[in-house]
Design a protein around this nucleic acid. Sequence first.
RNA 1: GCGUUCGUAGCUCAGCUGGAUAGAGCGACGGACUUCGAAUCCGUAGGUCGCAGGUUCGACUCCUGCCGGACGCACCA
Length: 587
Amino acid sequence: MIDLKLFWKQRVLEALEAYRQGQNIQSPEVDPAALVMEFPPKPELGDIGFPLFGFAKTFKKSPNQIALALEIWLKNQNEGISGGSAKAVGPYLNVFYDRPEIISKILERGSAEGWFDHKPLLGKRVMVEFSCPNTNKPLHLGHLRNNVLGESISRILSLAGADVRKVNLINDRGVHICKSMLAYQVYGGGRTPADEGLKSDHFVGKYYVMFNALKAEDPKAEEKAQELLRRWEAGDTEVLALWKTMNSWAVEGIKATYLRQGVDFDAYYFESLTYMKGVDEILKGLEQGIFYKEADGSTWVDLEDIGLDKKVLLRKDGTSLYITQDIGTAIYRHHDWPFDQLVYVVASEQQYHFRVLFEILKRLGHPWASNLYHLAYGLVNLPSGRMKTREGTVVEADDLIEELSGLASQEIAEKGRDESVGDVAGVSEKIALGALHYYLLQTSPTKDMLYDPEQSLSFTGNTGPYIQYMGARASSILRKAQQGKGSGSLGTVNPQKLASPADWALVRQLLSFSESVEMSAKSMEPSVIASYAHDLAAEFSSWYRDNPVLNAEDPDLSASRIALVAAVKSTLKKVCGLLCVPFLELM
RNA sequence: GCGUUCGUAGCUCAGCUGGAUAGAGCGACGGACUUCGAAUCCGUAGGUCGCAGGUUCGACUCCUGCCGGACGCACCA
């Protein structure tokens, strides 16, 4: 479908050039970049639009006159060529597609699984890093945004043709980990998560919170945590054993949440194994004179020439820092799986960190460093303000999904749909995830967002469940058609039957899917797909209200509408997949 | 103070590389279920696109300044 647009752009360029020469205008050749292509706001105006204001000055003619001339030229040239026709509409030259041609192409989606063929990122290898949890507490609402952003953008890039590798870096070392270990030593009494009937990561998190209590009791608690870290780094077997146990509890629990959320990774990296990487790289850079040493022995980089600060890369005792390991990890990963682009899904608080990191990698001479991208996302705030561990205002991931799932069950019961749904628990869980993921993705990543529990629990309006519902309705119609209800099985599909403005509006919407995928992939914005999903669902909703599918009087019309519904369902299913919104055959 | 980022309807958010009357949802008000599932649909009301300049044939979109919010400016991660 995209090729059709390129085809027209080319034709219009030719027409412009012919016009320029025909008018003997003393100006350079028409610059392809000067010709903008857009989509008219209303179907009556056409399917592609070329505003011609920009050429008025060079051609010394009004845009309206140019549009008319181009229309006539194209009409003469394109005799017998399919692909539609161009008409002057005021100062615009608009293309009207050949509708039956487009419709029959769109209807193929109903039968062929792999119909999506627009692959602008073909051949590109993209690594996406996301989630990166600490192993001292369970995932919370903020992680959910991170996870769904990472998973969604990976799926979008992948659909757009890229070869995607999803990676996670588990943050399993550091003083914060030692705090939960210390609290466990004091209060844990050797108990296990099973003993306390807690999910294993929540169990670990409980002790991390209890560290605050410990601090109140023991003024030396912080010091003791530092001591624990020193012993860990020295390889103390007792400390390592405890660390291993608690870490596996945390990771096991976190993985369970991933599974529930439908998120997964191609590779896990552990910070405890990678944090030393980077030191060598820094030393190499030091030799090359890219970095320098202070009198106290610490190693620095000076980025003041590009408006950034000086930054420490190695402590005076030679140990590594956060940025040191990120440098090492990036190089190691590129060695591991040579990528064209690496996307870091990390909160926008760390924007400065990534600017510095990317610049350092560039100075170290890695050509791929210019293709690193920080997909920065804003905080998730509550109506009551920011989430704070110490104030107990953290919304935990598992609790939230549980709550949403319970509410979905309630909704199903209230509508008296228990029997038709069958697996109420399973469907409720999927509705809950649909609601949550859609809610988190509909806002542009860069913006801080407000998470209103009440609003997210409502299943009406611009929400995941609304999209799921439209998918279920389409499925329901197709199911009935398959069972032989209505006259559709007696008719044959004929694109000419789908000739109403409402049909075309729906087809147009289906048509613009590849456009949305490309835009979303290029801008790293799943929100583009979210808004597409709503538009398509809404278009379908009003269409099927006015267009009886099974009950259409004419069998051919019914068959054609069934084919259109199948195309809608197929597209909706693909869209839901991109947004991590489970598709439901019924709900 | 410096840097980054955001500021669109009462609320939560869209608005693509500048282009045809600024769009949804919620909330408010009014309609539509003997008819493919009403988690739906249709209609009404509601906006000086933070403010002021500038660039342009044309600015919500680009530039500058100001105002307001968020985040960052550790030999923490």
